[in-house]
Design a protein around this nucleic acid. Structure first.
Lengths: 118, 118
DNA sequence: TTTATATTTCTGTAATTCTCGACATATGGA
DNA sequence: TCCATATGTCGAGAATTACAGAAATATAAA
């Protein structure tokens, strides 16, 4: 993950329709969703949606595969991880004391055992 | 951290000069840097830098205080944490199994003890 | 008060991005 | 082949953003 790739990822996520697209796709892991259904869900014309999916795709944040007439999109959790890593490593940069509380704060979101807060 | 604040943060980080500004400021925690010195370090005209600092500031990613004739900028690690949290929580959204490996991957960046990899 | 330093605001221009109608391409079924 | 469905590409207008010169504001020192 170099700086340009990070810039591309942030640019992709800095537009409302695209951020919503990303969120919808996260909630449809691991099956993914066809482009047309994303457009319908978000109430966006199909060609506009296609353009946005292209941006997300070039940024590496989503991947697609054709399935018959549909094209199924999925988020790339891997790329997501790299993007987060870029930011966090920046914040760490030789000073883990800045970064540790940052990660501590994220933990509650991912309970290590089976159940979340009761 | 609502969606609009997240969009603003991503937009702020999606421009090269601003991302570099953020990185420079991280490396100058906790003292911060005066606007003019940031401009000099990144070789950007002072008024252009001022505009970019305004964007970062409105996005909440940096904070400033006047010190005599200078205005000292610092990153807001707190806001940074909230932005990361927004993304990670989105990825978790009812499915910690997606998110846990994501956080696992970030850990090596912040060694819990004093030394990093040898 | 005058001058120098530090930063921001104003302003116009250039460049980029967003949007969507119209058209093109790909697939599968009749 | 012909038609319907699903998606992508092209093109142009609208909106937004980036940039930097010039002027304005704030502070401090002479």
């Amino acid at each position: 993950m170099d700086t340009n790739k990070a810039l591309e990822a942030f640019a992709a996520l800095s537009q409302a329709t695209r951020l919503n697209t990303f969120r919808v796709l996260v909630r449809h892991e691991p099956e993914g969703l066809p482009a047309g259904e994303i457009a319908r869900l978000l109430d966006v014309p199909h060609n506009t949606m296609s353009t946005h999916l292209g941006v997300l795709s070039r940024a590496g944040l989503v991947v697609s595969r054709r399935q018959s007439r549909s094209i199924i999109y999925r988020v790339s959790l891997n790329h997501m991880r790299e993007t987060l890593g870029f930011l966090v490593r920046d914040c760490c940069a030789g000073r883990p004391e800045l970064c540790e509380p940052l990660l501590e704060d994220l933990k509650p979101c991912c309970p290590p055992s089976k159940e979340t807060v009761s």
